[in-house]
């Protein structure tokens, strides 16, 4: 069984956002997971950052207008008229 290095809150906060983005190496991943299990304050902070990211993700979904969907469909129609770049 692998021993997980214990990190302090300062170190955990330094890596928190990259950890939530899944952008840390395996070792840091284990250290962070362990720290968040045992530290209530950092766990709450992580939950907050995660929730904020979720809200941002929801806001990022745009709703297209019917008129725009028609415009895009018309674009697809125009592609048929073009010559194939690799055709003889």
């Amino acid at each position: 069984m692998k021993t997980v290095k214990t990190i302090g809150c300062q170190e955990a906060l330094k890596h928190l956002l990259a950890y939530l983005d899944q952008e840390v190496g395996a070792g840091t991943q284990r250290e962070m997971a362990h720290h968040l299990k045992v530290c209530r304050a950092c766990f709450s902070r992580a939950e907050f950052e995660r929730s904020l990211k979720t809200r941002l993700r929801e806001v990022g979904r745009g709703t297209t207008r019917t008129s725009f969907e028609k415009r895009v469909n018309a674009l697809f129609g125009q592609f048929d008229d073009e010559h194939e770049p690799d055709s003889p």
């Binding site: 990022g60 979904r61 745009g62 709703t63 297209t64 725009f68 969907e69 895009v72």
Partner: peptide, 14 residues
């Protein structure tokens, strides 16, 4: 493209 249209538009809007 149709499957990604809302995502593309959402990013373009921001």
């Amino acid at each position: 493209v149709i499957g990604l249209l809302d995502q593309l538009f959402g990013a373009a809007l921001r």
